[in-house]
């Protein structure tokens, strides 16, 4: 028995790589509709977005600013949640402003946006009236700080070089007082903290901020949710799958989460077996 466990402890890591490769690829061929139970952070995110619907139902114009701060390396985690959020906002007839503090953020958000606009039910969504893409500008905190007072200070033109005064939506949106919610998708260091620090007022009537981030960033983001500095949090692929299930729009995250679960089972099995093998063979090593 000891010899068996010793062999396990010295298992070739290529076998582990192979098992992980199989566990992350084979499930992609079989779509298994896994039951997804949304966690509290994701439910809060959903509640915060749904709160906007009360306003739109009253006929009030609601404007949401979506900032993309991620690059192609984290697309599998962040693009599904961005897509689901944009879809929900479009369904609610919310006006959307896209921007980014990272160069690749706005193009990646627009990729999801343009894909959605191909659906016939969004054929009446018009650029400049229902949505605007401001693109990327350099400066991080300085950009946010400037936009709080006057968006045109930091973005005199949109991504195509059109003067913001020529876009009907941007004629109405002067600064952050005219924005109802900020949605931040981030895989970068500062993340939502920069938005909390510079966009949020300390008063109660400040706009809501919700955050979608990579799994790595979730533990450092939870304190801001618990303290009420952000109103919702989607964490990694699980958060994206949660939100897809909450809005009943299963897409890529729901598809990926089955493979994710299988891979987690494999990893857990290795951790358990590795620990058992370690304790069984410990006496011999001592």
């Amino acid at each position: 028995m000891e010899k068996f466990f010793e062999k396990l402890l010295n298992i070739d890591r290529k076998i582990i790589f192979l098992l992980i490769a199989l566990s992350t690829s084979v499930p992609l061929f079989y779509f298994y509709p896994q039951k997804i139970i949304a966690n509290k952070a994701s439910r809060k995110y959903n509640d915060a977005i749904n709160k906007l619907e009360e306003k739109t139902k009253k006929g009030e114009e609601v404007v949401v600013l979506i900032s993309g701060e991620y690059d192609p390396g984290t697309v599998p985690e962040l693009s599904p949640m961005a897509r689901a959020t944009i879809k929900k906002l479009l369904d609610m007839k919310v006006k959307i402003i896209i921007m980014g503090l990272v160069p690749m953020g706005p193009p990646l958000l627009m990729e999801e946006f343009n894909e959605l606009l191909k659906e016939p039910k969004y054929s009446d969504v018009k650029y400049g009236i229902d949505y605007v893409n401001l693109g990327y500008t350099v400066g991080n905190a300085v950009v946010i700080k400037g936009m709080v007072k006057n968006i045109k200070d930091k973005y005199p033109v949109d991504v195509m070089g059109t003067d913001l005064n020529e876009l009907p939506l941007m004629r109405k949106v002067k600064n952050f007082d005219n924005i109802d919610m900020i949605v931040n998708f981030s895989s970068m260091g500062g993340g939502v903290k920069t938005w909390i620090q510079f966009a949020k007022k300390t008063t109660e009537e400040s706009m809501d901020i919700v955050f979608g981030c990579t799994g790595v960033m979730v533990p450092e983001s939870y304190p801001y949710l618990n303290s009420g500095q952000i109103q919702g949090l989607l964490g990694g692929l699980k958060g994206a799958a949660d939100y897809e299930s909450l809005i009943k729009e299963p897409k890529n995250a729901t598809k990926y989460i089955f493979a994710q679960s299988i891979a987690h089972v494999i990893i857990m099995l290795f951790i358990i077996i590795g620990n058992i093998a370690f304790f069984v063979t410990r006496k011999k090593r001592v």
């Binding site: 992980i20 692929l237 987690h264």
Partner: peptide
């Protein structure tokens, strides 16, 4: 969460290759 994130990225790549 870090393990989950890295596996998610691998799944994304696998999906790119196979789909």
């Amino acid at each position: 969460y870090t393990v989950m994130a890295r596996i998610s990225l691998l799944i994304g790549r696998m999906y790119f290759i196979f789909s």
